[in-house]
Amino acid sequence: MSELDPLLRRAFDAARAERPRSGKGKAQTLAALGLSAATATASAGAGGSVAGGARLVSAWPWWGIGVALVVTSGAVLWSVEESAAPPAAASVAAAPVVSSAADTAAPVLTVDQLPNVAEPPSVADGVKLAEATSAAGSTSRRPALRPVLAPGPSAVASESLRDEIEAIERVSHALSQRRCGLARAHLSAYDARFPNGKLRREADVVGIEIAGRSGQTDRARSAARSFVARFPDTPYALRLAPWLRDDATEGRGPASVDMCTDAAD
């Protein structure tokens, strides 16, 4: 490049050196892909909130971290689903109360510590599920599955971006497994915990996807159009494209979309 104008060369150098101002975008991308943000964000040097992830990276081989995270995630999802199973007695509705433990490093599991079905979910990764009986006389066919954040100062203090990403990640993960019912339950938990969250738009979009992929095509299309009208500049329009088209009929989504296997939920 010796023939380049010196000013142009300087401009190229400046362009090569440009970086995102934070690692948030990368972390959000990982979350949108249903991946834990902790490890990769650590490699991006995003900062202290993921220090636990950074320690994991140095101590574990990549595949080990992947297995641990996915197993942990899977165990939690499985546990939530187990808890969310309809109760035997119609008069008792299970209402899992989700309370987040204080911010701690990502859990590191040995083989012996892998979650056991006999263990309470709280052992799995610090997410505590407590069942509470509903008011007497509840006859709703569907149990009250909305996980509700247990109120308290520690819960409020833990509402960090990382917690929020993890909450959305649980929704995305369930959706990626084509389990709309579970995704909806996780989204309700997110809504309750982060009513004004930084990932609000992501939550709205994934809510539309849940509706669409569970067969509520008209509702998804209407919500998608409303969303794009409200945020005309949004890049989410790409993601919502299947629901903005007219090639889907109620109960059957667009051809390019994998519908949930529990669409009847």
């Binding site: 249903g34 991946l35 990769a40 992947g66 996915v70 197993v71 899977g74 999802l77």
Partner: peptide, 24 residues
């Protein structure tokens, strides 16, 4: 009991997730 959890985590899923993570 663990084997009841593990089917959620297929080898292909782990490989795919690792590839995605590495790409990002």
């Amino acid at each position: 009991n663990v084997s009841r959890v593990l089917p959620l985590v297929g080898v292909a899923d782990v490989t795919r997730e690792e590839r995605l993570r590495r790409s990002v």
